[in-house]
Deep mutational scan, measured.
Amino acid sequence: DETGKFLVLSLYDYQEKSPREVTMKKGDILTLLNSTNKDWWKVEVNGRQGFVPAAYVKFL
C-alpha cells in the first residue's frame, strides 16, 4: 500500500471551491493520498484532506 508514501509539490496557489477540495499555496509540500483520478488528486495539506487539480502539483 503506497498511500501517504509520496510527496508532491504545489506549483500554483489553489483556492478550494467546494468542501471536498483543499486550499494550497505555491511551494507547499503535500502528502499524496490518492492519484487514481487523472484530473483530481487527493492530498493532505496542513492537517486537512481533500482534492486538488492534478495539473497543479508534481512529484518530488
Rank of each mutant, 00 (worst) to 15 (best):
G50Q: 01
K5L: 12
T23H: 04
K38R: 12
G4L: 11
E16F: 05
L30S: 02
E44S: 09
N46K: 09
K25P: 01
N34V: 08
K38T: 10
R20L: 15
L33T: 04
Y56G: 07
N37L: 09
D13F: 04
S10A: 15
V8G: 08
S10T: 08
V43C: 04
R20F: 14
N37S: 10
V22H: 02
G4I: 13
L32W: 02
P19S: 11
D1I: 14
L33G: 00
N46L: 07
F51E: 03
E16M: 12
G50L: 03
K17L: 09
E44M: 08
A55K: 15
K58I: 15
E16Y: 05
K38D: 10
R48I: 09
V57W: 01
D39H: 14
G47A: 05
L9C: 12
A54T: 05
K5M: 11
P19C: 10
V8I: 09
V43S: 00
F6A: 12
D28M: 13
Y12P: 01
A55V: 11
I29P: 01
P19A: 11
G4F: 13
V43I: 08
F6Q: 14
F6Y: 14
V45K: 11
S10F: 06
S18D: 12
L60D: 06
L11T: 06
V57N: 00
D39E: 12
F51T: 01
Y14E: 02
V52R: 01
G50F: 04
Y56H: 07
Q15D: 15
P53G: 02
Q15F: 14
K26V: 08
N34W: 07
Y14M: 02
S10Q: 03
F51D: 03
K42E: 15
L33A: 02
E21M: 04
F6V: 15
R48Q: 09
G47E: 05
F59L: 15
G50M: 02
L9V: 15
D39A: 10
V52A: 02
N37A: 08
K17I: 07
G4P: 14
T31L: 15
E16S: 15
R48W: 04
P53A: 03
K17F: 04
F51R: 02
S10V: 15
F6N: 11
S35H: 10
E21R: 04
A55R: 14
T36Y: 09
A55F: 09
I29K: 05
N34D: 15
L30G: 08
N46G: 12
L33R: 03
W41K: 01
K58N: 08
E2G: 14
L60Y: 12
N37G: 10
G4N: 13
N46I: 03
K38Y: 07
K42D: 03
T31E: 09
D1Y: 12
K26L: 05
K17H: 08
L33H: 05
V22I: 14
P53F: 04
M24W: 02
L33E: 01
Y14S: 02
M24V: 10
V22M: 09
V57T: 03
R48V: 09
L33V: 11
T36E: 14
Q49Y: 08
D28F: 04
S10W: 06
K17P: 04
Y14R: 02
K42R: 10
V45A: 11
A54C: 07
W41N: 00
Y12I: 11
W41F: 09
T3A: 13
L9Y: 11
N34H: 06
T31G: 05
E2V: 14
S18R: 08
L32R: 00
Q15R: 09
V22Y: 02
E44F: 05
G27S: 03
G4S: 13
S35L: 08
S18G: 13
W40C: 07
T31W: 12
N46F: 07
L7F: 14
L7I: 09
V8L: 15
E21V: 04
P19N: 10
D1S: 14
D39L: 12
G4K: 14
L32T: 01
Q15M: 13
W40F: 07
G4Q: 14
S10H: 04
G27Y: 05
A55W: 07
D39T: 12
G27H: 04
K25N: 09
F51N: 03
K25E: 07
Q49R: 10
T31F: 11
P53Q: 03
F59E: 10
S35E: 06
E2K: 14
I29T: 07
V57H: 00
G47K: 04
K17E: 08
T31Q: 12
S18V: 04
Q49T: 13
L60C: 13
F59V: 15
L60V: 11
K5F: 12
K17S: 11
Y56N: 06
L32M: 05
K25Q: 10
V45D: 02
V43H: 00
V43D: 00
R20K: 12
F6T: 15
K25H: 10
A54W: 02
F6E: 09
K17R: 13
V52G: 00
Y12S: 10
N34F: 06
S35N: 13
T36P: 03
K58D: 09
Q49M: 09
A54N: 02
L32Q: 00
S10M: 05
K42V: 13
K38N: 11
L60E: 07
Q49H: 08
Y12K: 14
F59R: 11
E44I: 07
M24A: 01
K26N: 05
K5N: 12
N46S: 08
K5W: 11
T23Q: 04
A55I: 12
G47T: 04
E2L: 14
V45C: 09
S35I: 09
E44T: 06
L33N: 01
T36I: 09
E44H: 05
S10D: 01
K38G: 09
L9G: 02
L32D: 00
G47D: 07
D39P: 02
D39Y: 15
K42C: 15
T3N: 13
P53H: 03
N46Q: 08
V22W: 04
F51L: 09
K38V: 10
E2P: 13
N46M: 08
V43F: 01
G4W: 10
K25C: 10
R20E: 12
Q15K: 12
E16D: 04
P19L: 09
Y56C: 14
R20Q: 14
E2W: 08
T36K: 12
K5H: 13
A55D: 09
L30K: 00
L7D: 03
T36A: 12
K38I: 09
E2Y: 10
V45Q: 08
G4V: 13
D13S: 08
T36G: 10
